[in-house]
C-alpha cells in the first residue's frame, strides 16, 4: 500500500506546475508594468482609463447579444428536434459540425461574406445590392452565434428529453393550455439546460479572439482579443494579465449567476 504515494507524484507535479503555478503567475504578473517593476498601475489604468472599461463593457455586451440570439434560435430547435422520430440521429447531425475545426468554419465565412462572396451575390440577386459584410459587428455576432449554436441546443435538448411526459399531462390535466404549460412547466423545468448553455457560450464569447481577428477585423475587441494583443503584439504582459484576471473574475460571476438556486434534496426526515 506504500506505492500509492509514488504513483500520485506525476499527477501532483502536474497540479503544482500546470494548474497552481500558471494561475498564480498570471495574478503575479498583473502587478508588474512593462519595464518589470512592481506596480498597482495596471489595475489603476484599467479602472480609470475609459478605453479598458469601454472595451470590457462592449465585450460583455457582444457576449450577451451572441448568447441571447443563440438561445433564441436554439430553444425552438431543441423543442422541435425532441418531437422528431429519430431524434438522437438528428441531434448527432447538430453535433457533427462541432467536430470541424473551428478555424475552418470561421475561414468559410471569409469567403461567404467577402465583397464578391455568395452572400453578396444573393443580396444583389434579390435586388438589395452588395454590402460590406466582413469586418462588421454584425458579421462577428453572426459567425460567433453560428459556432456556438450546437453548444446551446445540446443542453436544452437534453433537459427537454429528461422532462417526464407525465409533467406535461399533469399540467394539461390541471387545466393549463399549451402556452400555459410551456411557460409554467416546460420552461422552468428546462432552465438547467438553458443555464448550462448560457455558461458554455457566454465565457467563450468573451474570450474567443480568432473570430474577432478573422471576421470582426479590428473593429471588435473583446477581452480575449485584448489579452492576445497585450501578450503577443504589444508585449505588455502585465496589462494582459490584468485583463486575464478580470476575465477569470467574469467567469466566476457567470458561474455564480447561473448556479442552481433551488435547494434540492433538502432535509431528510
Amino acid at each position: 500500500m506504500h506505492k500509492k504515494a509514488t504513483y500520485l507524484i506525476p499527477y501532483l507535479l502536474w497540479i503544482g506546475l500546470f494548474v497552481i503555478a500558471p494561475m498564480a503567475l498570471i495574478v503575479y504578473q498583473s502587478f508588474f508594468n512593462i519595464t518589470g517593476h512592481f506596480t498597482l498601475g495596471n489595475y489603476e489604468q484599467y479602472l480609470t482609463n475609459g478605453v479598458y472599461l469601454k472595451m470590457t463593457f462592449n465585450s460583455i455586451l457582444y457576449a450577451l447579444i451572441i448568447t441571447l440570439s443563440t438561445l433564441l434560435i436554439s430553444y425552438p430547435t431543441a423543442l422541435l428536434l425532441n418531437r422528431l422520430k429519430n431524434k438522437q440521429l438528428w441531434l448527432l447531425l447538430i453535433i457533427l459540425p462541432t467536430w470541424i475545426n473551428l478555424l475552418l468554419k470561421t475561414y468559410a465565412f471569409i469567403g461567404l461574406f467577402s465583397q464578391n462572396g455568395s452572400v453578396n451575390d444573393f443580396l444583389r440577386f434579390v435586388g438589395l445590392g452588395s454590402h460590406q459584410i466582413l469586418f462588421t459587428d454584425a458579421s462577428f455576432i453572426f459567425v460567433a452565434a453560428y459556432i456556438e449554436i450546437p453548444f446551446m441546443i445540446l443542453p436544452i435538448f437534453n433537459s427537454l428529453a429528461e422532462l417526464k411526459p407525465s409533467m406535461i399531462n399533469a399540467s394539461r390535466d390541471l387545466g393549463a393550455n399549451s402556452w400555459q404549460t410551456f411557460r409554467r412547466v416546460i420552461l422552468p423545468l428546462t432552465m438547467p439546460g438553458v443555464k448550462a448553455g448560457f455558461q458554455a457560450i457566454f465565457i467563450p464569447s468573451l474570450s474567443l479572439f480568432m473570430i474577432t481577428r478573422l471576421i470582426g477585423g479590428n473593429r471588435v475587441i473583446t477581452l480575449g482579443t485584448a489579452i492576445e494583443e497585450h501578450f503577443l503584439v504589444t508585449q505588455n504582459w502585465g496589462m494582459g494579465s490584468t485583463i486575464g484576471v478580470i476575465l477569470i473574475l467574469a467567469m466566476f460571476v457567470v458561474m455564480y449567476l447561473t448556479r442552481d438556486r433551488k435547494v434540492k434534496g433538502g432535509r431528510i426526515r
Binding site: A170, R172, G175, K262
Partner: peptide
C-alpha cells in the same frame, strides 16, 4: 383537449412539479 375536461388525474409517478413547492403544486390548477 385535456385542459378542458372536468376530470383530474393522480398519476402513477405523481408527476408533481419539482420547481414548485407543495402549496404551489396544489394551487397550480
Amino acid at each position: 383537449p385535456a385542459n378542458e375536461r372536468q376530470v383530474n388525474t393522480v398519476f402513477q409517478d405523481y408527476a408533481l412539479f419539482p420547481h414548485l413547492n407543495v402549496f404551489e403544486n396544489v394551487a397550480f390548477g
